[in-house]
């Protein structure tokens, strides 16, 4: 019962705590960390559950960000025909959903590809995919404004009974929105991995031949996982773009994928809570360090912290804590048994 309530208690604390503190800077840090945690959760579905290392995961994030930005701003596309294709500004939520869909579509293509190229080749292909996306964003200036970035992206809006539809300029609302999307993504992943579909994904990670020998269509489930993961990363990108309200090609930078991988691996890949724990630790850490250390020292501490976690807790923080609790319970049970023996003797 307590384990069922614990996650909701955590959500409640996360919802109330920062607002109660009321510090705008803390809200900003937690919002951007939250956005990355959503990305990390989606990466975990691939890396942790299906065992496929996609080092181009930020591509889905960037595709979601750009698509959502472009749809909400409107754009015209000169495809060489007589008339350019013109699309007026769309409602932000339509744009946001569009970003998710387009990211998911790319997820579908990468998922199909993942089946054909495995291991190291897949890693290279996914890295290249993100790089190509960055090049497209840089060079397709007519559409993306290239390095000048897309500016003045409208914020997401929300309907409130007491205010009607309001655009979300305020940090508090953005923070709560990110938290809400994170909760939805968590529930989707939780339901998925604890089901027949999730077991098929884990089977692919654990032993692909055995999975196929019992009739699991590994290709299909790998594609399902990539589509869902890409869609979620696209949602994170959409949240990002409407929160920061500017998006440039640097959104596709490799370092962001690395950040998400660090969050997943330190927290514990293949666990539900891992990306959240690792994400909070390694999303908030740089900001804390910024307060206390010089820039070059910040990154040294960051790197050392990461290595320490990976070295001493190779499975990640969450499995380590779980094992510790399980071990303690066993020890307690053993002592209880020993006591009973002594008294009976």
């Amino acid at each position: 019962m307590t384990t069922r309530l614990l996650p909701w208690l955590f959500v409640l604390v996360m919802a109330v705590g920062p607002l109660w503190l009321g510090d705008q800077y803390i809200l900003y840090v937690l919002t951007s960390t939250g956005i990355f945690i959503i990305g990390a959760m989606s990466l975990n579905l691939l890396l942790g559950y299906t065992g496929q290392l996609s080092l181009g995961h930020i591509a889905f994030f960037g595709i979601g960000a750009y698509t959502s930005a472009l749809l909400s701003l409107g754009f015209d596309l000169d495809l060489g025909g007589a008339e350019p294709f013109v699309l007026g500004p769309q409602p932000v939520w339509v744009a946001f959903l569009g970003g998710i869909l387009v990211a998911a579509l790319f997820g579908f293509l990468i998922g199909k590809l993942a089946f054909r190229v495995r291991g190291a080749y897949f890693v290279i292909v996914t890295i290249s995919f993100a790089q190509v996306m960055r090049m497209v964003a840089l060079n397709w200036v007519d559409l993306t404004e290239g390095p000048m970035a897309l500016n003045n992206i409208p914020p997401l809006s929300v309907w409130l009974p007491w205010d009607g539809v309001i655009p979300l300029y305020r940090k508090e609302y953005n923070y709560l929105l990110v938290l809400a999307v994170a909760v939805v993504c968590f529930l989707v992943i939780q339901r998925l991995v604890q089901s027949r579909v999730g077991r098929a994904l884990v089977a692919l990670r654990e032993n692909e031949s055995l999975a196929r020998s019992v009739g699991i269509d590994v290709t299909r489930y790998l594609v399902v996982a990539t589509v869902i993961a890409a869609g979620m990363a696209g949602a994170a990108g959409g949240l990002y773009t409407h929160y920061i309200r500017i998006v440039d090609p640097d959104v596709f930078m490799f370092i962001y994928t690395v950040t998400m991988v660090i969050m997943v691996v330190t927290g514990g890949k293949g666990t539900l809570a891992g990306p959240i724990v690792g994400g909070l630790a390694f999303g908030v850490l740089p900001e804390v360090l910024r307060e206390v250390a010089r820039p070059e020292v910040q990154w040294i501490i960051y790197g050392v912290a990461m290595i320490v976690v990976v070295f001493f807790l190779p499975q990640g923080i969450v499995p380590a804590v779980k094992n510790w609790f399980a071990g303690r319970r066993k020890r307690v049970a053993a002592t209880a048994l020993g006591l009973r023996k002594e008294t009976s003797a």
Binding site: R199, A200, N207, G215, I216
Partner: peptide, 18 residues
């Protein structure tokens, strides 16, 4: 050939896929 990282129960449950 087993799913080494899963419990015995989940191994068989995974086998029930079809």
């Amino acid at each position: 050939s087993i799913f080494a990282g899963c419990t015995v129960f989940d191994n068989v449950l995974t086998g029930m896929h079809r």
